[in-house]
Design a protein around this nucleic acid. Structure first.
Length: 89
DNA sequence: CATTTGACGCCAA
DNA sequence: TTTGGCGCCAAAT
């Protein structure tokens, strides 16, 4: 029976991001690696960019350079949320 | 099916 | 330290 779990990279990324606890942050590269493709960090950014689902705390994904990164609702808002959550960033 | 798009990452200067 | 440029990949068109 071809019931092999076949998740798209996009689904895996969303799943990983959904599991990020409050006050924690992951880098795009880390998320890509956890999703099974350590070199797809570029695609991760693109995927999160299209996500407007508030159930996915995509604001907890930051750059490896220590910068905030972007956010489809405004980078300022992203930084504010991270500060409110007490993220080490 | 081919090309373009980007919320990135890393290195050299 | 900061900046510019190249590489990298999935999804959209």
């Amino acid at each position: 029976m071809g019931l092999s779990i076949e998740m798209k990279f996009q689904e895996l990324v969303f799943d990983v991001v959904k599991e990020i606890p409050e006050g924690e942050t992951l880098t795009y590269k880390q998320v890509a690696k956890m999703a099974g493709k350590p070199k797809a960090y570029r695609a991760v950014g693109n995927i999160l960019n299209k996500n407007f689902d508030p159930a996915i705390p995509c604001h907890r994904v930051v750059r490896s350079d220590g910068k905030i990164g972007g956010y489809n609702r405004g980078e300022s808002y992203k930084r504010k949320i991270l500060k409110l959550e007490g993220a080490p960033i």
